[in-house]
Amino acid sequence: KSAVKALFDYKAQREDELTFTKSAIIQNVEKQDGGWWRGDYGGKKQLWFPSNYVEEMI
């Protein structure tokens, strides 16, 4: 599983989504079709976030 870095702040709209700030590192990313991926951040595990808010880390 990979890690991504947030390009923008994102505030969860639902309880199954992540809230994060710009430059946050989201771990254990599971990529899905449809523009939403799952990952771990801030003590939350495998919640959804919009993939267009992040960049992949190499």
Rank of each mutant, 00 (worst) to 15 (best):
K1N: 12
K1T: 14
K1M: 12
K1L: 13
K1S: 13
K1H: 13
K1E: 10
K1R: 15
S2N: 13
S2Y: 12
S2R: 12
S2A: 13
S2H: 13
S2E: 10
S2M: 14
S2G: 13
A3F: 13
A3N: 14
A3V: 15
A3P: 09
A3S: 15
A3K: 13
V4Y: 13
V4P: 03
V4G: 06
V4H: 08
V4D: 01
V4M: 11
K5A: 05
K5G: 00
K5E: 07
A6F: 00
A6P: 06
A6I: 03
A6Q: 01
L7N: 07
L7R: 10
L7M: 11
L7H: 06
L7G: 06
L7Y: 04
L7P: 04
F8C: 15
F8E: 11
F8W: 12
F8Q: 13
F8N: 11
F8L: 13
F8D: 10
F8M: 14
F8H: 13
D9N: 07
D9M: 01
D9Q: 03
D9Y: 03
D9R: 01
Y10V: 01
Y10S: 05
Y10P: 06
Y10M: 00
Y10K: 04
Y10R: 03
Y10A: 01
Y10E: 06
Y10G: 05
K11G: 09
K11M: 15
K11R: 09
K11C: 15
A12L: 01
A12M: 04
A12C: 08
A12Y: 03
A12V: 02
A12G: 12
A12P: 05
A12S: 09
A12K: 03
Q13P: 03
Q13R: 12
Q13E: 12
Q13S: 10
R14P: 05
R14S: 14
R14Y: 11
R14K: 15
R14C: 15
E15F: 10
E15C: 14
E15G: 09
E15L: 10
D16N: 13
D16S: 09
D16F: 08
D16Q: 08
D16H: 08
D16P: 01
D16E: 11
E17Y: 03
E17Q: 11
E17P: 00
E17I: 00
E17W: 00
E17F: 02
L18E: 04
L18P: 03
L18Y: 02
L18Q: 01
L18A: 01
L18C: 05
L18G: 00
T19G: 07
T19E: 10
T19C: 08
T19M: 04
T19L: 03
T19I: 02
T19W: 07
T19P: 04
T19H: 04
T19Q: 07
F20T: 02
F20R: 01
F20W: 01
F20V: 03
F20I: 05
F20K: 02
F20Q: 02
F20N: 04
T21V: 12
T21A: 12
T21K: 13
T21D: 11
T21I: 12
T21N: 12
T21L: 12
T21Y: 11
T21Q: 12
T21E: 14
T21R: 12
K22D: 04
K22I: 09
K22W: 03
K22G: 06
S23E: 14
S23G: 15
A24P: 02
A24R: 01
A24Q: 06
A24D: 08
A24I: 05
A24V: 08
A24C: 12
I25W: 08
I25N: 03
I25L: 09
I26Y: 00
I26C: 04
I26N: 01
Q27F: 14
Q27E: 15
Q27L: 15
Q27D: 11
Q27S: 13
Q27M: 14
Q27W: 12
N28C: 10
N28P: 03
N28Q: 07
N28Y: 06
N28F: 05
N28H: 07
N28V: 04
V29Q: 01
V29L: 03
V29W: 02
V29F: 02
V29H: 01
V29R: 01
V29G: 02
V29P: 00
V29Y: 02
E30Y: 12
E30P: 01
E30A: 12
E30L: 14
E30Q: 14
E30D: 14
E30T: 15
K31A: 05
K31M: 11
K31V: 09
K31C: 07
K31D: 03
K31G: 03
K31R: 13
Q32H: 15
Q32E: 11
Q32S: 14
Q32V: 15
Q32A: 14
Q32G: 12
Q32D: 11
D33L: 11
D33A: 13
D33S: 12
D33V: 11
D33Y: 09
D33Q: 11
D33N: 11
G34Y: 06
G34I: 05
G34E: 08
G34C: 11
G35P: 11
G35T: 08
G35Q: 09
G35D: 11
G35M: 10
G35E: 10
G35C: 14
G35K: 09
G35W: 07
W36M: 08
W36F: 08
W36Q: 05
W36T: 00
W36N: 03
W36L: 04
W36H: 05
W37P: 03
W37S: 06
W37V: 05
W37E: 03
W37I: 02
W37M: 07
W37N: 02
W37D: 05
W37F: 05
R38H: 03
R38N: 05
R38M: 10
R38E: 03
R38G: 04
R38I: 09
R38V: 08
R38A: 06
G39H: 00
G39V: 02
G39C: 04
G39T: 00
G39L: 00
D40K: 00
D40W: 00
D40R: 00
D40Y: 00
D40I: 00
D40F: 00
D40L: 00
D40Q: 00
Y41A: 06
Y41N: 03
Y41C: 06
Y41E: 03
Y41H: 10
G42T: 04
G42R: 08
G42W: 06
G42S: 08
G43V: 07
G43Y: 07
G43W: 04
G43Q: 09
K44P: 02
K44I: 05
K44H: 12
K44Y: 12
K44W: 08
K44V: 08
K44M: 13
K45C: 13
K45G: 05
K45T: 14
K45I: 15
K45Q: 12
K45A: 09
K45M: 13
K45S: 12
K45P: 02
Q46N: 12
Q46E: 07
Q46T: 05
Q46A: 11
L47M: 13
L47D: 04
L47A: 15
L47F: 11
L47N: 09
L47V: 05
L47Y: 12
L47W: 04
L47R: 09
L47G: 15
L47K: 11
W48G: 04
W48D: 02
W48R: 11
W48N: 04
W48Y: 10
W48A: 05
F49G: 01
F49I: 02
F49Y: 02
F49C: 04
F49V: 02
F49E: 03
P50L: 03
P50I: 00
P50R: 01
P50T: 00
P50G: 00
S51N: 07
S51G: 07
S51C: 14
S51A: 14
S51H: 07
S51R: 09
S51W: 06
N52L: 10
N52G: 11
N52P: 06
N52D: 14
N52Y: 10
N52H: 13
Y53R: 07
Y53N: 04
Y53F: 12
Y53G: 03
Y53Q: 07
V54F: 02
V54A: 06
V54H: 01
V54M: 02
V54D: 01
V54W: 02
V54R: 00
E55K: 09
E55V: 13
E55F: 07
E55R: 07
E55T: 12
E56H: 07
E56A: 09
E56I: 10
E56G: 07
E56R: 04
M57R: 06
M57F: 14
M57L: 15
M57E: 09
M57Q: 09
I58E: 14
I58A: 13
I58F: 13
I58R: 12
I58L: 12
I58K: 12
